[in-house]
Design a protein around this nucleic acid. Structure first.
Lengths: 255, 255
DNA sequence: GGTTGACTTTGACGTTACGTCAACTTCTAA
DNA sequence: TTAGAAGTTGACGTAACGTCAAAGTCAACC
């Protein structure tokens, strides 16, 4: 069954403008578009929209929302995690209400409330950002998010030489890993681990992952569309192979 | 005791940019500004900031926040009402969490959730707007907010003739009421009620208030800075006189 | 007194996530 | 066929700051 833009907008209590915006930025692409240009959405898109609105409600920017809903991840497990997030947000409102109650009591008693107590529970944005970061840390490991940020953001500050080095090295590594996959080399073989040492050294230019983080990075590569599509473009199935090779490397050579 | 911009920003977990912005728009004016141009805030401003941040957190636009915090109203009563608002927002998160739980159950059971059930609890903005409107209705009565909106918004669509009629009539009414006050006429006297009939007729051009609403409108005139300053400019103390006269008129001649 | 770094200001452009509107096409019911 | 509802694209506008530059002020230290 499919629904038009207005039908979805009505059900989800958003505007059709919002849905068009989300299509435009690739956040929620309709199931199909008719010859007339009309957008039609199906159950899968509705479920995705629910997650989008939820994460938006939890204060994430749309870029961050995209990161999360795009990640390959068991949908039910993701929803469970969002549910926990909601409960924590609920607790925050309880804290706000407690602060207001305290202010009322103090005013009624003719007292002055301690200035810094007035704003207990109000650090909304930083707390929400912490939740987001905690989510990523739990999902991928320590430092992986920073690595992602750097790969996206810091390149802006790089010199042209740094950029071209990066742009040369990353694909070269992918190609070496692809050759392993092509040759049917098991990820635990010494030969594979040596190639992965090259990747590890490449990553260590920005940050030194531990065992857990390096494995997490491999999962991020496989699970987030941004990296995955790059890797899969080199060779189908490479994302999984790289992920497994990184896990094997972490196991064998990191602590 | 006073605090600098950065001190307040730190305590309230906002940026100094936000505080400057609020000063700029008149929402939170510092207690005093030094010869060097530096802003200093005192306890009164901190309490006001708490309310501002609270209402912002509840989803109001800054214009709406200003309306509420500017209204002359017992501070403790206002905080009590905000507290209730917070608890209702907490409930909304509980509803969101319940919707997510339901989605999880359905997905685990291999079912499809009814499309419109997917977004139960998600109508965030309209619910928040309803809370705001309910607040104003409880405070001033039915229709008073619409009147306020009209006096602010609809004038945009008026012809120049309509505007000048309004701009002539409203001050003329204020002057007539001021003469009553000057002459020491009790608001319950026939003479006063007759003048107020003129104001009532003026209001009825837009909307017909009942007894409660008309009294509420008088309270809005006295309690919201926007109207109050206009009225007090005609004659100090006129806002209270007009409020009392409107209450008397409502009592005597409306149902 | 001079220096330095932290703090503060004003001014102004930029950002995010749409809101609003215009112009046009498509659909559907009467 | 017609009219009104529904849909599209394109594009400017908005709210609430974020960011940055330029310049002034303050306070501690030498």
């Amino acid at each position: 069954m499919s629904w038009s833009t207005a039908q979805v907008a009505r059900m989800a209590k958003v505007t059709s403008r919002t849905l068009r915006h989300y299509d435009r930025i690739g956040l929620l692409v309709p199931a199909w578009t008719g010859n007339n240009g009309y957008r039609y959405y199906e159950q899968e898109q509705l479920l995705r929209l629910q997650r989008i609105l939820l994460l938006r409600e939890l204060g994430l920017g749309l870029n961050q929302v995209a990161e999360i809903v795009d990640a390959r991840h068991d949908q039910v497990a993701a929803l469970r995690q969002h549910h926990k997030w909601l409960l924590r947000e609920q607790e925050r409102y309880a804290r706000l209400a407690a602060t207001v109650s305290e202010t009322i009591s103090q005013l009624e008693g003719g007292n002055e409330m301690a200035a810094d107590r007035l704003f207990e529970g109000f650090d909304v944005d930083s707390e929400r950002q912490k939740e987001y970061e905690a989510y990523l840390r739990a999902r991928f490991g320590e430092g992986v998010q920073e690595h992602l940020d750097e790969s996206k953001g810091r390149m802006r500050d790089w010199s042209d030489q740094q950029k071209s080095e990066f742009l040369a090295e990353w694909p070269a590594i992918l190609r070496r890993v692809a050759e392993l996959a092509e040759a049917g080399v098991a990820v635990t073989e010494e030969r594979a681990l040596d190639v992965l040492a090259g990747h590890y050294a490449f990553v260590c230019k920005a940050w030194t992952p531990n065992k857990h983080s390096y494995r997490g990075l491999g999962e991020m590569y496989a699970d987030t569309e941004e990296f995955r599509s790059q890797i899969e473009a080199v060779r189908p199935g490479l994302a999984e192979y790289l992920r497994d090779a990184m896990a094997a490397y972490a196991e064998a050579r990191l602590s």
